[in-house]
Design a protein around this nucleic acid. Sequence first.
RNA 1: GCCGGCGUAGCUCAGUGGUUAGAGCAAAAUCUUCAUAAGGUUGAGGUCGGAAGUUCGAUUCUUCCCGCCGGCACCA
Length: 479
Amino acid sequence: MAKFYITTAIPYVNGKPHIGHALEFIQADVIARFYRQKGEEVLLLSGSDENALKNVQAAEQADIPVQEFVDENAKLFYKLSKALDVQFDVFQKGSNPKHHESSQKLWELCDKAGDIYKKAYEGLYCVGCETFYTLDELDKNQECYEHPGKKLEIVSEENYFFKLSGYQEKLITLVKKDELRIIPATRKNEVLAFLKQPLQDISISRSNERAKNWGVSVPHDDSQRMYVWFDALNIYQSGIGFGNDDETYKKWWPADMHVIGKGILRFHAIYWPAFLLAAGLALPKTLFVHGYITVDDQKMSKSLGNVIDPFELVSKYGADAVRYFFLREIPSSEDGDFSYEKFETRYNADLAGGLGNLVARVVTLKERISSSTPKQFLNQELQALVENTRSEIQRSLSEFQFSVALDKIWEIIHFCDKYIEKQRPWEESDNQKSVIENLLFALSNLAEFLQPFLPETSKKIIQQLDQGKEESLFPRIET
RNA sequence: GCCGGCGUAGCUCAGUGGUUAGAGCAAAAUCUUCAUAAGGUUGAGGUCGGAAGUUCGAUUCUUCCCGCCGGCACCA
């Protein structure tokens, strides 16, 4: 049996999840469910990046112990996956001691390869933010935006560096040859454009003081903690046993796919493969990069007050409606826009009037005849359409075009509506029974196709075909 | 500034060197009642961002211009 290991990005948990996280969870879940349905052995991993300094700062502000703070927030992310019917097989926390050990192992492998060295790092440090800034991140007075009027200090600190510069050519080759496949092509081009400039070595540790004694300790040096990205990326490995369970690790690594947002492309396309190359480990096969979601065509932000709470969406419309909207309306690898108006229009047109209504009318028609769902089609046209849809789903999902796949599935719905109109199976006739049976079989195929996208709805359709009419799948929203 | 992408019906987008440029949604008319006042049918709606060029012929290729978006490292 083929294995398929897929991950979401590892969100840093200094706040609550927003709909961007929901989008990514849903996309990854659909792919995982699709492969699972095909019979492959699938593992879907997510987790929480808990070792970032930002977590410490956010915890301080909330006046909560750091561990407690990240535990609470991580729980919310996990809860979101449940709310969305997203099935994580592993949820690896960055504060898990096994993860710490695992990251130390990765560090030691890189060190053994001679790719880690110590060097003084000098930069502009804002005491207020407790962060280093580069000049272009500062305002015209060379002060940070959070703390105007406060001069930045030049701080120098000994850190460990990773010889990223040594991997330039290898990375270019890997990306060019699609050995590290990056989807969509525009993101691949961006990486290649970036790799045209000479790579600089990167700092991969912080002083304990600056890290506030939080995060993974550097092996054999108690005075330093790992730079958060070094360990965060390794959650992809630590969650499947790297450093503590060789058998499990060997079974799943390398990752077949990392699903990530466009903002963290460089870490995944350059740093991560370089760390793995240094450590002599296999590389992930594919990076799928999605865009960001705007709300009413504006960037989501706390200050604008337009942040959409995914939990609220789910409790208002249901998990499958939320899944449907994000998969159908947000272009899978570009930015997309959310608005309640778009959501409700989509919902009423496709879910209430389309799918839900079709199921209701067919299930009612079924009660007119004594029949159960047949095992095959009698109508050739319908059969051809369904078979064609099966291959179209396969094709479009291999290119992560969720929207196209759903569009193809909806063609079956439109066909069935027309078929009913034309055949008038509510009237008694010689072919009444066969028409209804065709529809029943069409719906059972529909349920199969919908399973990765709308798992709960898929289940309900099968149930209604079996047990007769129940409550509406998607009650119409009055606007 | 440099690099890349985009600009097609009211909205979201598809598409092709060649006869009348497509889909869905929204809006209109009409048919129907099995169904969630849902569904079917039909019609309307576009100088395919602007200008020039290549060509027998360009929305599709080239150049320029205008507008929008993304990327340009140690920040998660």
